[in-house]
Amino acid sequence: HNLTITQGKLFFHYNPKLCLSEIHKMEEVSGTKGRQERNDIALKTNGDQASCENELLKFSYIRTSFDKILLRWEPYWPPDFRDLLGFMLFYKEAPYQNVTEFDGQDACGSNSWTVVDIDPPLRSNDPKSQNHPGWLMRGLKPWTQYAIFVKTLVTFSDERRTYGAKSDIIYVQTDATNPSVPLDPISVSNSSSQIILKWKPPSDPNGNITHYLVFWERQAEDSELFELDYCLKGLKLPSRTWSPPFESEDSQKHNQSEYEDSAGECCSCPKTDSQILKELEESSFRKTFEDYLHNVVFVPRKTSSGTGAEDPRPSRKRRSLGDVGNVTVAVPTVAAFPNTSSTSVPTSPEEHRPFEKVVNKESLVISGLRHFTGYRIELQACNQDTPEERCSVAAYVSARTMPEAKADDIVGPVTHEIFENNVVHLMWQEPKEPNGLIVLYEVSYRRYGDEELHLCVSRKHFALERGCRLRGLSPGNYSVRIRATSLAGNGSWTEPTYFYVTDYLDVPSNIA
């Protein structure tokens, strides 16, 4: 807008934040220059609390790290170098490059900038070799853009010569660093050979998330399962459950009422301010606690030095998902009996873990797994792929695949051998790939016309006998059925096997 004052003059007093240069501009645009008398524009009460600059400061050096910015700028000295009290560095987070010096300023003089007072450097006698002032900004957020400017702080001049310097606002972004852990990993099994893994992005990506790394490792069953005799009275049979499938998407929606109208769909109840505040506090606490764990609990591995020492970490090797089922080394339970199943799973520490690289999504279907087997899954978020990966501390989750139908069934015939004193040795093959492992066998036998009897055969007993022995049988026709019990439950009964026990007292003698 054009402003013209045809008559009258300007009068400025007691404006401590208004620089004289701005008042002189007002004289020019209003056409009143030359009308004012000496005392109409006070030299001592206008701009006496402001830094009124008329020179431009330029930054000469900028260096960044993930949490620091090192700045240096060209030296500046007023005509009387004693008038320079120091520099004021202003900075704040700036997602967009549209910041002005006066953003967030209120009537009390406060604003949204963080201000650092910096002492002037030592003055050199040689004007050509003056030290460049600077400042190291610490405690910054990774991968965050900051708006920065600097200006001088000078003393009051009796001659009211307006001098000083100020830089333009520059924008500097800190470097990326390792992201925080992925949030809320959930693993479920939808079949006997697959596990579905879902997660949420890290709360602090500290860069642009480029991919996720998912490692999985087959877990050995508890050692007590191999040692305890679950045929003993009072000892509860062990059981394991597989990871249940995901709930429906509708039930997972946030901010939804727990109660549904019987007449149909209901609208979600909005969260109160107290609920939102509580969630923010919980989120802040979780982030602080995660940072504490990362800094205190997890110790970084030592990389190899120039002395030739090897990095103890196993090298990563990509495998196809079809090879995942046989990740671990199978060892027989008892070496003397080769027909026992290889369900003991000690994992070799030198073995390469299978892994998958996930790009542009937060889910993965891990296939080719062994049925009813526990897996430990390790999830890392990465925001750099080359020249070397920059990934987060791992988040861990466990899951067990679903049982395989008929995996616990005894394959092959049940054979028998009759000894003296009416002892019958029953023999059968253990299931080759049971659900988890076989903890015991149930032997059901009966003599024709009598009630059915049951015998429990422990895992250890089966390994020693290759089956079991029935003792003290009365003469007669017998039928026997056997079924295995694994961590997933009972298998199917075998087809009945028949044998006849004679009275050993009636056996004919070869003595003449």
Score class of each variant (00 low, 15 high):
H416W: 09
S367C: 12
V443A: 03
V411C: 10
V334I: 15
K361Q: 07
R483M: 14
G207K: 02
W493S: 03
E351L: 15
L277W: 12
N383D: 04
S363E: 11
E356V: 13
Q252S: 13
V331Q: 13
L505W: 04
E350S: 12
I377Q: 02
L293G: 01
S398P: 12
R240S: 13
D450P: 01
V393L: 04
S315H: 10
Y259V: 11
L280I: 13
N339F: 09
D503H: 03
N255L: 03
H425S: 13
S479P: 00
R471A: 15
V424N: 00
S274T: 09
L426A: 01
T415Q: 13
I366T: 01
F499V: 12
E350V: 13
S344T: 12
G306F: 12
F355S: 10
S392Q: 03
E310N: 06
F226C: 09
S257I: 04
G306S: 08
C231K: 03
T343D: 05
R466V: 04
V296F: 03
S486P: 00
V327L: 11
G234K: 07
C269Y: 10
A336W: 06
S479K: 02
T307S: 10
V397I: 01
A405F: 12
S348T: 05
I418N: 11
K432H: 14
N383C: 11
L464D: 10
G449I: 08
D311Q: 07
E260Y: 07
S283K: 01
E260S: 08
V423H: 09
K287S: 06
P300K: 13
A220R: 07
F462W: 13
L440P: 00
R218W: 04
F355V: 12
N383K: 03
L437P: 04
Q256M: 04
C382Q: 00
P354W: 10
D273L: 09
D450H: 13
D506L: 11
C391V: 02
R353P: 14
V439E: 07
S248F: 15
P354Q: 12
V345W: 12
F298V: 06
S274H: 12
F337K: 06
P403I: 12
E224Q: 13
T494W: 01
I418V: 10
E279F: 04
Y498G: 10
F499G: 00
I418R: 05
S262Q: 07
G234Y: 06
E282P: 12
S248P: 09
F215T: 05
L225F: 03
E290K: 06
P496S: 10
P300W: 06
E310H: 11
R319I: 05
G491Q: 14
A394Q: 11
G374K: 10
Y292G: 02
E258W: 13
S367L: 11
L470I: 12
K432G: 02
V297Y: 12
D261L: 09
G476P: 00
T401R: 00
Q256N: 05
F289P: 07
C456P: 04
Y478A: 00
V414K: 01
H294N: 03
V393Q: 02
E310L: 15
I482F: 02
E247R: 12
E282Q: 15
L455D: 03
N339W: 11
F246A: 03
N510I: 13
R471V: 15
L228A: 13
F372S: 07
T272Y: 12
K271T: 09
R481L: 10
P300L: 05
Q275G: 11
L455H: 11
H461N: 07
W493H: 00
I438A: 04
G476H: 00
E378R: 05
S398F: 03
G325L: 08
R471H: 07
Y292W: 06
N383R: 04
L464M: 09
P434E: 02
R483K: 12
V331I: 15
E452Y: 15
Y259D: 07
R481C: 04
K460G: 05
F462Y: 03
L464T: 11
G374N: 12
I377L: 13
G476R: 00
T340R: 07
V501Q: 03
K406S: 10
H211M: 04
K460V: 14
S492G: 13
V414H: 01
D503M: 07
L464N: 15
P413G: 15
L237D: 12
V329M: 12
P332H: 12
E249Q: 15
V334Q: 06
A395L: 10
M402P: 07
K361E: 10
P270I: 10
D273S: 11
Y212L: 03
D204Q: 03
E351M: 13
S243Q: 09
F215E: 03
P387L: 09
M402K: 15
V331K: 06
V393R: 15
S444M: 07
R466T: 05
Y504F: 08
Y441K: 00
A395D: 09
S363P: 06
I209M: 12
S274P: 10
S251E: 12
V359C: 13
